[in-house]
């Protein structure tokens, strides 16, 4: 589904290379996890996949396959990538004062409808649709009448990310430290939500510091990212090894 090929990247206008040749292939139906110490480039990778203008890719490509066609998504605007089914759950969801959550979600949803040539949903139908998704995440109904993420608690913001994922139903989702700031109950609810969204045709990339989340969202592959490079890739047992021994033994 997605092939990340020899990606080198730095902060736009900066000199320091953050990613130093990342290679990663993810197939439909798979869940991959990326772990790594602070500053290893995990979040940078997720932002590059989504198309954040702050980063500059100096080498490599990211091929995304949909409808039997491969596109280098680095040529696409963030909104175009999103419409193609790429989703990023933010580590730090952004507060958007003055923009009502349900208005925002409906606009996002209808962009996808437009893109797929389907009829846009009106307010009433969408209201019903969103309520069903909120139930999935055990969210209070008053959420959607509030401005996006404004004055939300850390846990509420993360749930809101997964709600958006549920509404947009992406083919390829990147979850950037979705577990950070979540208490045990919220982690269970959020992970349950993510697991329910799993399907044969889609894939997930989970970025985390801790093995704990991977008890809930079980990965098929675990990759260790250190200093901008993937140094080791194995099955889910690698996460347990890291939990026990830290990252030092992986640094050659």
């Amino acid at each position: 589904m997605i092939e990340i090929k020899n990606i080198h990247a730095k902060v736009a206008g900066g000199d320091t290379e953050i990613l130093k040749g990342i290679n990663l292939t993810i197939n439909p139906g798979e869940v991959h996890a990326i772990m790594g110490p602070n500053g290893s480039g995990k979040s940078t990778l997720s932002k590059i996949i989504a198309g954040h203008p702050e980063y500059e890719v100096t080498e490599g490509e990211i091929l995304y396959e949909s409808n039997f066609k491969k596109t280098n998504i680095l040529d696409l605007e963030p909104e175009e990538r999103a419409r193609e089914g790429i989703f990023l759950a933010f580590q730090y969801p952004v507060e958007i004062p003055g923009v009502n959550t349900s208005v925002f979600l409906r606009a996002a949803f209808n962009e996808i409808c437009k893109h797929q040539g389907a009829e846009e949903m009106d307010t009433l139908d969408f209201d019903e649709y969103i309520r069903s998704k909120m139930k999935l995440l055990e969210m209070d109904e008053k959420f959607i009448t509030r401005p996006v993420n404004e004055d939300f608690s850390g846990g509420e913001k993360k749930r809101n990310e997964i709600l958006q994922m549920a509404v947009l139903n992406p083919r390829f989702a990147v979850l950037d430290e979705t577990d950070s700031g979540l208490d045990i109950d919220s982690m269970r609810i959020v992970s349950d939500g993510v697991n329910k969204l799993k399907a044969k045709g889609n894939a997930q990339l989970v970025i985390t510091h801790y093995q704990r989340l991977l008890n809930y969202i079980v990965p098929d592959f675990v990759h260790i990212l250190i200093d901008g490079k993937i140094v080791k890739s194995e099955g889910k047992e690698l996460a347990l090894a890291v939990e026990e021994k830290g990252y030092d033994w992986l640094i050659k």
Partner: peptide, 17 residues
């Protein structure tokens, strides 16, 4: 950027904000 990652075109995002 946040709005764009949710499929909303930049122009529309500017309007929305």
């Amino acid at each position: 950027f946040y709005l764009q990652t949710r499929c909303i075109p930049r122009k529309e995002a500017i309007r929305m904000l």
